[in-house]
Amino acid sequence: MQMKFKLTVIAALASLAGMASAEDLIVKIGHVAPLSGSQAHYGKDNENGVRMAIEDLNAQNIMIGGKKAKFEIVAEDDAADPKQGTAAAQKLCDAKVAGVVGHLNSGTTIPASKIYNDCGIPHITGAATNPNLTKPGYNTTFRIIANDNALGAGLAFYAIDGLKLKTVAVIDDRTAYGQGVAEVFKRTALSKGMKVVDEQFTTDKATDFMAILTAVKAKKPDAIFFGGMDPQAGPMLRQMEQLGMSNVKFFGGDGICTTEVAKLAAGAKTVENIVCAEGGASLAKMPGGEAWKKRYDAKYPNQFQVYSPYTYDATFVLVDAMKRAKSSDPKVYLPELMKTNYKGVTTTIAFEPNGELKNPAITLYVYKDGKKTPLN
């Protein structure tokens, strides 16, 4: 009899425990980036940042509206393709995620931003830099990194004022990102008296640039500006070396500013000619950068690229707004997101009325012995 009573009590307690966990608030955070294709190394790095944030948040036993919140990632692959990007965005809307971190590319983020706006879900990108992203004025769109206006202009100023270069050839990959950053660089360079001696374009799938570079070489530029990503920049640098263009500086935005670019250039000495820009401070100058990077490397060895500190912060910014609103419902916490003043790993994050980051920093980098090194 006593044994039966004990078993009944245990069963009742187990049932209560089940009820308690059933009352936990499940908060789904979406993440989208290319997890397949030539840009998968960026996408995986971005996803790692979100996963690390979710782990850290779950360890904090956060309460939202009186309930213990349990955070989960819903990860989607957009393969850096605009069509797949909008399909992934719709999938996250249908899954009723509380918020989204992403996307990586401007070409996927811009069309996806309309989907998120239409279904009322906030999204924060820590990677897409085309200024057109915030132009529609959607109150669901946020960016926590400097845009191409800052990156392209900063590189042009350094080329002219810092290196005293007189002529440049501009190549872009015809994506929203590549064209955008190249256009800003060109416009700023021309306004400061630099001569653009040639303009060429390629695609974000190409690997053979010999014809383009041969045409550029004939114009004898001091520098090439490339608007694009590292899967193209690496082979381009290798082919520049093969064509004897080892004295030509190679400028680009955050798309080429990776640890991977030196590997993709297969040891070409022209890597030493790179000058690239990233939105945000260098890891050493970020408020929590170096300590965070140690933890990241322990968890995800040899996977760090560029944007994971930003996707980490973006996840915390979403949750910070939910905590202040006492709700994970996007309609309820969205007004709090606009009032963000969050001390993150990357910087103190606050937003302009259009969702752009207030007071964004940029950092210029060069490569010494194949290693990415901040200039400022």
Rank of each mutant, 00 (worst) to 15 (best):
I62T: 12
A277P: 00
D230Q: 13
L92T: 08
A80Y: 14
H41C: 06
N302W: 00
N376W: 02
A314F: 04
L25I: 12
E183P: 00
T125M: 10
G255N: 05
E278S: 12
D254F: 02
N247T: 14
P301T: 02
V170T: 13
K91I: 03
M229I: 09
S38E: 13
F209D: 12
Y342F: 15
K67M: 06
S327T: 11
G370L: 07
V184T: 13
D148K: 04
D94F: 06
G66P: 00
L151R: 04
Q232G: 14
A159G: 10
L243R: 11
Q242N: 12
A266V: 14
K166W: 03
A218R: 14
K339E: 13
A80D: 08
A88V: 05
G65I: 04
K372T: 00
A14W: 04
G289E: 09
T125Y: 05
F226D: 01
M229Q: 11
T108E: 01
G126M: 07
A284I: 05
L165F: 03
N117Y: 07
V74Y: 10
K195D: 14
K67A: 06
S36K: 13
F142Q: 05
T373W: 07
K44P: 00
K368Y: 00
A14K: 01
A12M: 15
K294S: 13
I212N: 14
P287I: 11
R295G: 14
E356N: 15
L25G: 09
G126T: 06
Q239H: 03
D24L: 01
I212E: 14
V170K: 08
N273L: 10
A169N: 01
D297C: 02
A59L: 06
I145G: 02
Y158H: 15
K219F: 05
L163A: 12
